[in-house]
Amino acid sequence: MDLKLETRDENGRTIVKVGGEIDVYTAPKLREQLVELVGAGKYHLIVDMEDVDFLDSTGLGVLVGGLKRVRAHDGSLRLVCTQERILKIFRITGLTKVFPISDSVEQAVTAVD
């Protein structure tokens, strides 16, 4: 399954909508997208993971890398995720304490980081 990526700007944030499976094969595509956005001066990112079917540690690593990149510019990276099977991976690794996670894009774009 391919990784689907769509981006749009809203309320001063850039929303990256991700669909499909994020794994060792597809994660480089997401990394490339995040690097490109930061390179273009987009430092406040929202990664919408509601259409993600699968996430592994490689995907976590890419998200952590993205967070480090935006923080280097005093930016933010917020996740949108309500899927328990995805949230479980963040909990296992302790990353729920690192990533702000919203229940919806609407909530994320108005959140204060």
Partner: peptide
């Protein structure tokens, strides 16, 4: 921030990305 483990990597600047193997082992 995390004191140790994968989450701790966020606070470090030395590495560009997290070591995938270590994160995989943690999962």
């Amino acid at each position: 921030v995390a004191e140790s483990g994968p989450a701790a990597e966020v606070a470090e600047d030395e590495d560009e990305d997290l070591d995938d193997a270590e994160m995989g082992l943690a999962v």
